[in-house]
Amino acid sequence: MNHVLTSERLGLRPVTAEEHEVLFAHWTDPRVRQFLFDGGVLAASEITEAIDGSVRGFASEGYGIWVVRLRESGEAIGVAGLRPLEELGLEVFYSLNPHVWGRGLATEAARAVVDYGLDVLGLPRVLAEVDEGNTGSIAVVERLGMTPFAVVPGVLGPMIRYRVSR
């Protein structure tokens, strides 16, 4: 199965161990992690675990973490992926470097991942869980056609759960 995804402006490839520094720099940026990891900072060993888990996930289940790159320059600008959301199914997640915010790239990356989940993996639905205060991500999931179905408590406050299906 081909796990490489492309969109008009982006290329998404499964993360590899060689991209540890890329993920470390991205996930430790205070602006990026504001709504990720409950605001905590990941240790280098946790990033290694995330990469290793993604490699195993792509091999066995067909999903994990993609590094998002601009097609024109090849610059790594963030990550997107699929992961289990409790027993409910798979959720899309994404985070981009602040210098590319506001250009529709998060929606473009997330759409590629959602389409992959629904079309390639044949999922009945794709979920998202967004901090209530994360207005940027709420706008992204709404542009993806996702609709809210629950509000649950989170460490940083209420979390809104969304879903989309074909």
Rank of each mutant, 00 (worst) to 15 (best):
M1F: 08
N2A: 05
N2C: 04
N2S: 09
H3T: 12
H3N: 12
V4W: 08
V4C: 13
L5K: 15
T6N: 14
E8Y: 07
R9D: 00
R9W: 01
G11M: 15
R13W: 14
V15F: 09
V15L: 11
A17E: 09
F24C: 14
A25M: 06
H26Y: 09
H26M: 03
T28D: 04
P30E: 02
F35A: 09
F35P: 11
F35Y: 13
A43Y: 08
A44Y: 09
A44N: 11
A44M: 06
S45Q: 11
T48V: 14
A50Q: 10
I51H: 08
I51G: 04
D52E: 05
D52G: 02
G53D: 04
V55T: 02
R56M: 11
R56S: 15
G57T: 02
G57I: 09
F58G: 06
A59N: 13
A59P: 12
A59M: 11
S60K: 07
Y63Q: 08
I65G: 03
W66G: 13
V68G: 02
V68H: 08
V68C: 10
R69G: 00
L70Q: 11
L70T: 12
R71P: 01
I77S: 00
I77H: 00
G78S: 07
V79T: 03
G81Q: 01
R83V: 00
L85G: 13
E86H: 14
L88D: 15
G89P: 00
W101E: 04
W101N: 03
T107F: 04
T107W: 00
T107C: 08
E108P: 03
A109L: 09
A110D: 01
R111Q: 04
V114M: 12
D115H: 13
D115P: 01
Y116W: 09
G117W: 01
L118E: 07
L121N: 02
L121K: 00
P124W: 09
V126Q: 05
L127Y: 13
L127M: 15
A128W: 12
E129R: 14
E129P: 08
E129H: 15
G133I: 07
G133P: 07
N134Q: 09
N134H: 10
T135L: 05
T135I: 08
G136D: 14
G136A: 12
I138V: 02
A139I: 09
V141P: 08
E142D: 09
L144N: 01
F149M: 11
F149E: 03
A150F: 10
V151G: 13
V152C: 04
P153W: 06
V155P: 09
G157Q: 11
G157T: 07
R161P: 06
V164M: 12
V164R: 15
